[in-house]
Amino acid sequence: MSAPTLDRPDAAAPDEAALQAHFDATIAADRRVEPRDWMPEAYRKGLVRQIAQHAHSEIIGMQPEGDWLLAAPSLRRKAVLLAKVQDEAGHGMYLYSAAETLGADRADLTDKLIEGRQKYSSIFNYPTLTYADCGVIGWLVDGAAICNQVPLCRSSYGPYARAMIRVCKEESFHQRQGYELLMTMMRGTPEQRAMVQDAVDRWWWPSLMMFGPPDDDSPNSAQSMAWGVKRHSNDELRQRYVDMSVPQAAALGVTLPDPELALDPETGRHRFGQIDWAEFKQVISGNGPCNAERVSRRRAARDDNAWVTEAATAYAAKHAS
């Protein structure tokens, strides 16, 4: 199959104004843009950036929990965790494929990740200190990811929207598994309950940061919303996540580490404390606890095994006829 042709505006292109009008009408009617359709260059570039960042997050996101795979405390938990980490590799693959429909190349995107030219979700730069972290990542981190990602199932770009439907179904399964682990641990020994509370204390605030900067400080949001790539604002999604998580924390029997967290009886929504955006900026700019380790493992996977890929390419060339 040949690569999809992208009708970029160039000398041979038909009247760009007409193409733009057609694109605008597609967006206005809430229809999908497909790979062969003309699209503004900024739309294409923005999508590649967003999808690649999402794909990188899935792949880097394998590491924090993957660190517990060899030590999972029961064979059932080991199976659950291995299947989950495998799903994340799968998500990365379909998201890179979605980016490739826009003319990007997986190897090139991986290089950009390793060289720090593209980002991934800052949440994965925190360490997993106990097995409870695997449960809390499922409950809170996957939970926040679902809040962010479910609206993307209606993204204006068809391949991304379709990939997200499958990703969200699997993420919701992971979230239930994480919550079930925490429930089991809360019914266990005092040490296990303490582990769960400690993990919640460490992951709650970073999970709130997953929705991105506040709306008044989010440079790409407005255009993404206008193009239907993004459907809800960062603050709107964050509020929804807090409102959902509070009763879940109560059912679990843990305390969320925010003394200002309280239900506003008038709005029915929860007020919460000030997020430490300085920490967010530190972590996203490379100074979190595990940034260097996460990227260096990805680099090692690429560089130390480059001979494997070279061999496969050489073999395919020899046996092509």
């Binding site: 792949i59 394998m62 291995l82 299947a83 590799a89 693959m93 996977a301 095994n305």
Partner: peptide, 15 residues
């Protein structure tokens, strides 16, 4: 896991 040469191999080896 997380160290395989290709994502396809991550999936296959985990399988």
């Amino acid at each position: 896991t997380t160290r395989a040469p290709e994502l396809e191999e991550e999936v296959a080896i985990a399988n």
